[in-house]
Design a protein around this nucleic acid. Structure first.
Length: 503
RNA sequence: GCCCCGGUAGUGUAGCUCGGCCCAGCAUCUCGGACUUUCGAUCCGACGACCCGGGUUCAAAUCCCGGCCGGGGCACCA
């Protein structure tokens, strides 16, 4: 097949296997609703979305909201947060399913598996079973129980006779399996935890591998792409599919992602968001999709970076730099330029020619047709005697010596005179002079500049002043502060607030 | 302890199924240079890898064996 070469398209991904076995590709995304999707979940989402779009298939969003555990709990607000993240990524979901709506289905199959003698109700103490039976590969007495006895026990699980952990349904995957991980795994257990959607309606809950063994078939899933932490679960699913003679969906696994420049912890983020230490789920330290959106990271930058990883099952450690590089190439063109000075060193301008009262800087240097920003030097028109003052970046000023020739970008060249206050003596207008002297060209701000705060990636805030035109910028604008970096305006009142994206 | 998976430049990836066109392609990073009134963009260039050892073969990154290294599983979590 001929693939058109388009350098803007992500790398060509491999074909999905055994396409001819299925009428139409049906895939699913199954986040556990404990919080918003973060960059680590993006791979799962993007991969599934990519293949569904490629084959014009169907994508089902399945909220994997079984009861979880003490460490992993369903959080009610997560459902909407997840949808928000999917919207940002541009994922179209054809259908949404909640695991917690399907308990009756899992119960029916549980009874059927018991009747087929493929499963049994085990009331052994979990640690005893682990140490005496799983490790040694020896079946417990429960395994030999009659169907009748098992069904009776099953009812006792449902009606509350058994307490939590008092009994569980085990699937007969085989006590003689060489892999201890595969020996008669629990597929349903008792939990009386309150569920955000269905409350205490059910006290018997399926485990992930079991619910998927049933649902991947019931939902008509043809291809499953998920993290390799689920390969054991995949094997158990295959065991279930074989019992029923169902056609096996294709299983694809990818490795875990580690980010060199980000620490991801949904539970820590949750804690910090709740305590107010983080400003919300869009705090950059959460690395949530919301936070990336706020920073102006284009969904396609994320998409390309994720697809560039391919489908390798190896665990990988990646950097955000490719994402940033892609984002820059996607958004640099649209980004208007502004000056921002973090800790201005206020300096007096002297000897300005009378006609030099405003600086004109291009909105975007590569597109002169987009016009100029005007930076007036004389805000105090009523008091012509007042000195003209500009703010310089402290970092630059520190490196200057008296007598240095520097250029205020888009204005003129000056000779530095260090002091308190520092003064800048007008020298010349054109850029050639400073070039010859090999002097620095720095950005600056005039007196009537706009209070501006930039939220950095580590959550700290760079506060300073932005040039006057920043006042008219709209919320949502992706911009560049010259010699500082790119960011997106996310809020504006007296202060313009920008989320830093990248250099 | 048992089981599974994997090892291509700093990082990520292509190639490995069907050995030769691979003295290994691409991206990113880094470093030079050009250009530019930004530490942005653009252009040019450079650096840099098939884990090791055997074997099969006319020929191996690709197949086989051993070793080493790395990751994961062994929950009444997802």
């Amino acid at each position: 097949m001929e693939q058109p070469e388009d350098e803007h398209e992500p790398k060509e991904m491999p074909e999905l296997p055994n396409l001819d076995k299925w009428d139409r590709v049906v895939m699913r995304m199954a986040p556990f609703p404990s919080g918003p999707l973060h960059i680590g979940n993006a791979r799962m989402v993007i991969l599934n979305d990519y293949y569904v779009k490629r084959y014009d298939g169907e994508l089902i969003l399945v909220f994997d909201d079984t009861i979880g555990s003490d460490e992993k709990q369903v959080e009610p607000e997560a459902f909407d947060l997840i949808r928000e993240g999917l919207d940002y990524l541009g994922v179209n979901v054809d259908r949404t399913v909640y695991k917690s709506d399907r308990l009756e289905l899992f119960y029916r199959y549980a009874v059927d598996l018991i009747k087929r003698e493929e499963a049994y109700v085990c009331d052994c103490d979990p640690s005893v079973w682990r140490n005496e039976h799983k490790v040694k590969g020896k079946a417990c007495a429960c395994r030999r129980l009659s169907v009748e006895e098992n069904l009776k026990r099953w009812e006792m699980m449902l009606d509350g006779t058994y307490p939590e952990k008092g009994a569980a349904v085990r699937l007969k995957t085989g006590m003689d399996d060489p892999d201890p991980a595969m020996r008669d795994h629990v597929i349903l257990r008792i939990s009386e935890t309150d569920h955000p959607r269905v409350g205490t309606k059910y006290r018997v809950w399926p485990l992930l591998e079991y619910s998927w063994g049933i649902d991947d078939h019931e939902l008509g899933i043809t291809h499953i792409i998920r993290g390799k932490d689920l390969v054991k679960e995949g094997k158990i699913e295959q065991h279930i599919w074989s019992i029923y003679g169902w056609k096996h969906p294709e299983l694809l696994y990818y490795g875990r992602l580690k980010f060199q420049d980000a620490t991801l912890s949904k539970s820590k983020s949750r804690q910090e968001v709740l305590s107010g230490a983080y400003t919300g789920w869009d705090d950059p330290r959460t690395w949530s999709l919301q936070s990336l959106e706020r920073r102006g990271i284009h969904a396609d930058a994320l998409r390309k970076a994720m697809l560039d990883l391919g489908l390798s099952i190896v665990d990988i450690s990646i950097s955000m730099k490719p994402v940033y590089a892609e984002n820059r190439s996607l958004r640099d063109e649209e980004a208007p330029r502004f000056f921002f000075v973090e800790e201005p060193v206020w300096s007096h301008l002297q000897g300005l020619p009378p006609d030099l009262d405003t600086a004109h800087a291009p909105v975007h240097p590569d597109f002169p047709q987009r016009g100029v920003r005007n930076i007036p030097l004389y805000p105090k028109k009523l008091n012509p005697e007042a000195p003209v003052i500009v703010g310089l970046p402290e970092r630059d000023y520190e490196g200057f010596k008296s007598g240095d020739l520097i250029r205020l970008k888009d204005l003129a060249n000056f000779v530095v005179e260090r002091g308190d206050p520092p003064t800048l003596q007008y020298d010349s207008k054109s850029v050639e002079e400073v070039r010859e002297a090999d002097g620095p060209i720095i950005h600056w701000i005039p007196e009537n500049s706009v209070p501006t705060e930039i939220v950095l990636i580590d959550g700290s805030i760079a506060s300073g002043l932005g040039e006057p035109d920043l006042r008219s910028v709209e919320v949502g604008t992706f911009l560049q502060f010259e010699r500082f970096g790119f960011g997106r305006v996310y809020e504006k009142d007296e202060i313009v607030r920008v989320a830093f994206a990248h250099k």
